[in-house]
Every structure is written in C-alpha cells, then in structure tokens.
C-alpha cells in the first residue's frame, strides 16, 4: 500500500481549479465554447479570464443580417455593442440629398456601437451589412446586471472601453491638429 502524502495548499488549489474547470467544460455546449473562443480574440475582452468570459458569453446575443440590412440607424437610441463574427459592415451617415456617405467598412473581430454601453444617447451613424453578416450583441442593461453580480468582469470591460475611447480621442485630436496645421 502506498503511503498517503499530504497535498500542499497550492496543490489543493490547483486540484480544485482543475476539478471545477472540468465541471464547467461538461456544462458548456459546443456553440457556447465557440463563442467563448471567439470572444477571447476581441480586444474588448482581452483582460477577462476564462470563467469570466463564460459569464459574458451567456449574455451576448447572436444575430444574422442579410446583405443590405441595417443593424441600426443613425439617431436611434443605442442599447447594445455589436461585435462582427463574420461578414462586413458599412458605417455610414446620410447626406441631405438622401444618399449615404460611407465612413468606414469594418469586418470580422471588429466591434461598433460601443458608446451604447455607456448611455442611451442616439447613434451617431448607421451600420449596414454589406454582405451576409453574423454579429454578437452585448446590451448595456446586461452589463449593468453583470456589474451587480460580477463587478470584476465589468471593471475589466469598462477599462478596455475607456482605453479604446481614449485612443480614438487621441487619434481625433491628432487629425484635427493636422488639419489645422494644413489650413495654416
């Protein structure tokens, strides 16, 4: 008979982590695991750990849009952030003549409508699918709920959001500076 060796605290913690990890894997189905794998690649969620991504995956909604279909239109109240799983989205604003000016075309792994995670202010541009597109939607209300149950998750998401918005502000400032210099 083998002598029974006592586990150290760290070994106990590792064993428990493996045990709960296995249990979680058993609970998850294949599409959900795919969703988690996909979310892990998005910069928005890069600070999140695996079990935290698990919680986020539960509150995101998968939607499929046909070619030409609007995801949202300018001036509509913003309620969700969208992440492109596949396909392409045209971000555009309408001109007074009724035509649309394309601001950008974004594709897989990119996200848009992130300001809706902060408040209900109207969308500043429209988003239209230009090919059949799959997106994931994360609603502000779900994030608020997650904040009350898992504040560590939302803290990381908000941190990423702040960084992204900060970077965009910097880029806009630089653009304005360049334009002013060009005019001068």
């Amino acid at each position: 008979m083998k002598p029974i060796t006592k586990l150290t605290e760290n070994e106990k913690k590792s064993a428990l982590r493996i045990f709960w990890g296995q249990l979680r894997k058993v609970n998850r189905n294949v599409p959900e695991q795919d969703k988690i794998k996909f979310l892990k690649r998005i910069p928005f969620f890069e600070l999140l750990k695996k079990h935290q991504l698990d919680e986020v995956a539960r509150v995101v909604y998968e939607r499929e849009y046909r070619d030409g279909e609007y995801i949202f239109e300018i001036d509509q109240p913003g309620a969700a952030l969208f992440i492109i799983q596949s396909g392409e989205i045209s971000v555009e604003i309408p001109t007074p003549k009724g035509e649309a000016t394309q601001l950008a075309v974004i594709s897989k792994n990119a996200f848009f409508g992130e300001l809706a995670l902060l408040d209900e202010s109207p969308r500043s541009a429209s988003a239209r699918a230009i090919v059949p597109t799959k997106v994931l939607a994360l609603f502000r209300k779900d994030l608020d709920k997650l904040n009350s149950t898992n504040p560590d998750i939302t803290a990381n998401i908000y941190k990423s959001l702040a960084t992204i918005i900060g970077n965009r502000l910097k880029a806009t400032n630089e653009l304005i500076e360049r334009k002013i210099k060009a005019v001068a």
Binding site: Y61, Y70, F72, Q76, A79, A80
Partner: peptide, 10 residues
C-alpha cells in the same frame, strides 16, 4: 426580426 431586435430587448 432584426429590425425590432434592439427595440424588443429594450
């Protein structure tokens, strides 16, 4: 339907 998705959620 997609058109009413955000509205329905809200």
């Amino acid at each position: 339907p997609n058109r009413y998705f955000e509205l329905a959620y809200t």
